[in-house]
Amino acid sequence: MKVYSPETIEETTKILGKLKGNVHLLAGGTDLVVKVKEGTVLPENLINIRKLPLDYIKEEGNQLRIGALTSIETIHRSKPIRTYAPILSDAAGKMGSPQIRNLATIGGNIANASPAADTVPPLFVLNAQIVLKDQKGSRVIPIEKFFSGPGENVMRRDEILMEITFRKCAQSDEWFFSKLGQRKALAISKVSLAFRGKVNQNRLTDVSIALGAVAPTVIYAQRTARFLESKTFDSALIDEASRIIQEEASPISDIRSTSEYRRRMVGALLKQGLWELKAGVSPD
């Protein structure tokens, strides 16, 4: 294993452009180090990118920009993110444990392309854009086009994930992020659900829902979202939506759960979240 520790982006993309054989980028290492130890990943070349200047959260007009090396804990505690993307802060706080959150980075959580990655459903409903860079220049990819399968993404081997950008949420946006795991800490999600929308005169509008761990990648539940916008926000709507969303999920059975359980829980998480939302916005 040959290790490189570049200190600038230019140096990094140059190394990436030149290297033959397999290359792995080491950011927080909370997934990669375990895989290397288990032997499931055998890196010929390891590029430690931790020194790159990609640890930042910037506000620019109505946009937020998060550097790929920002830690999950920093995102959880960040004031701008709590204010303008509270769903992302909430999901970050539900990940791993303090030790993991201090090391793990948002870029790593995305690039790893786990269907169960907890920052990804919130980034879907935030309509986030992923900025990639190679030696020649940058390209921007909407997050829903970034993943191509479990553990797979559209990055070319000479590219580096630079930052994540999205529009700030409005104060009037309602949201919830629900995660179901074996226990609160250190559990990989069996199912996760991110919801964003507005409530206007007992109607839901601008609804966006993303589901984690129930398909080869995180997915939008578009049929459910459109259905929720179509009628009065009442118990019948909630019941029907939690039925429809189960049809949109295509979960598998694995070590963490069964497909049947995951499918039902997608409906349950939506139902629970919508009832809490309804109780919060209409005190009657």
């Binding site: 290790v3 520790s5 080491l26 290492g29 909370t30 375990v34 430690n48 030790q99 993991i100």
Partner: peptide, 25 residues
Amino acid sequence: TGECGACSIILDGKLAKSCLLFAPQ
């Protein structure tokens, strides 16, 4: 594998797990 916390250290003021770090890092 980063689950149990028995190998915890404080790295630059923050709690971390030493089983998840390569020494050169």
